[in-house]
Amino acid sequence: MVIEAELQEVKRARDFVALAFGAWGLEDHVARTVVSELAANAIEHGSSRGDPVVVRAYQREDGSPVVEVWDRSDVLPVVGPVDLCAEGGRGLRLMEALVRAWGVRHLSEGGKVVWAMIAPVPR
Rank of each mutant, 00 (worst) to 15 (best):
A40G: 06
S73H: 09
Y58E: 12
P81D: 12
E96A: 15
G46M: 14
V79H: 13
R49T: 06
E61H: 09
S64N: 11
P52E: 07
A39F: 04
A39Y: 02
D62P: 00
A57Q: 04
G46A: 11
D74E: 07
V67Y: 11
L92E: 04
L84Q: 04
E44N: 10
L38K: 02
V66T: 01
G50H: 05
R32C: 00
R49W: 05
M95S: 03
A31R: 01
V34P: 02
E96I: 03
D83S: 11
R49L: 09
G50A: 06
D74H: 00
V35F: 03
V82L: 12
G88W: 14
V67S: 07
V78T: 07
V34F: 05
A86K: 14
V75C: 04
S47K: 09
R90I: 03
D51H: 05
G89T: 06
L92P: 03
S73P: 04
S73V: 13
A40E: 10
G46I: 14
P65A: 00
V75T: 08
L76P: 00
V82W: 12
G63S: 01
D62F: 05
L92K: 05
V35Y: 06
L92S: 02
A40T: 09
V30P: 11
V75E: 12
H29V: 07
V54K: 15
L76R: 00
L92M: 14
G50E: 03
D71R: 07
S64Y: 13
L92F: 15
V66A: 03
M95N: 02
S64R: 14
H29N: 07
V75F: 08
G50M: 13
P65M: 01
V35G: 02
A86Q: 12
L38N: 01
S64V: 04
R93Q: 13
V30G: 07
E96T: 09
M95A: 11
R90E: 11
V30K: 15
L92N: 02
V53A: 01
G63H: 03
P52R: 11
L84E: 15
S48P: 04
E87C: 08
A31C: 02
S64T: 10
S64F: 06
V75N: 01
R93G: 06
W70L: 10
V53I: 13
N41T: 06
V69F: 08
V53S: 01
V35P: 04
S73E: 11
P77N: 09
H29Q: 09
D71A: 07
R32G: 00
G46T: 05
R32M: 00
H29A: 07
D51F: 13
G80F: 09
V55S: 00
Y58R: 14
V75Q: 03
H45G: 00
D74T: 01
P65Q: 00
G91R: 14
V79I: 15
E37T: 07
V55K: 03
E96K: 15
C85Y: 12
N41K: 11
V53Q: 02
V35Q: 06
R56D: 07
M95I: 08
Q59P: 04
D51W: 10
L76D: 06
